[in-house]
Design a protein around this nucleic acid. Structure first.
Length: 101
DNA sequence: TGTCCGCGGGTGT
DNA sequence: ACACCCGCGGACA
């Protein structure tokens, strides 16, 4: 997991990224869920920060991480529903994959 | 339903 | 070492 090429990320950030990567395609998880995975269910805010600072936004499905009440969160709120669109397309892709099979 | 506080860790100063 | 920040969560009004 740890490469020397990687930026200075702390263990907790790695936990967050790893937990986020564990989220199944087309599925969504809450910050609280991720926080619990890393062993800090109260560090939900820190989780969000780690995601925001994530070095690989491409492999990190930040849009897949939402608030506990089902809201997409501030990221999407600051844009034109970026999370929602990404998630929607993601589900569309998943559906297409299933359809092709 | 709306607003406030607290939790946990990062980064900047 | 201290203070402020953050893509939240939960409690209280």
């Amino acid at each position: 997991m740890n490469n020397k090429s990687v930026k200075k990320l702390t263990a907790f950030e790695w936990k967050v990224l790893s937990a986020t990567l564990k989220i199944p395609l087309g599925e969504t998880r809450t910050y609280q869920w991720v926080a619990k995975q890393i062993g800090c269910p109260k560090a939900v805010r820190a989780v969000g920060q780690a995601l925001k600072k994530n070095p690989y936004p491409v492999i990190i499905p930040c849009h897949r991480v939402i608030k506990s009440d089902g809201s997409l969160g501030g990221y999407a709120g600051n844009h034109t529903g970026r999370k929602k669109i990404l998630l929607n397309k993601e589900q569309n892709i998943l559906a297409a994959m299933i359809g092709k099979s």
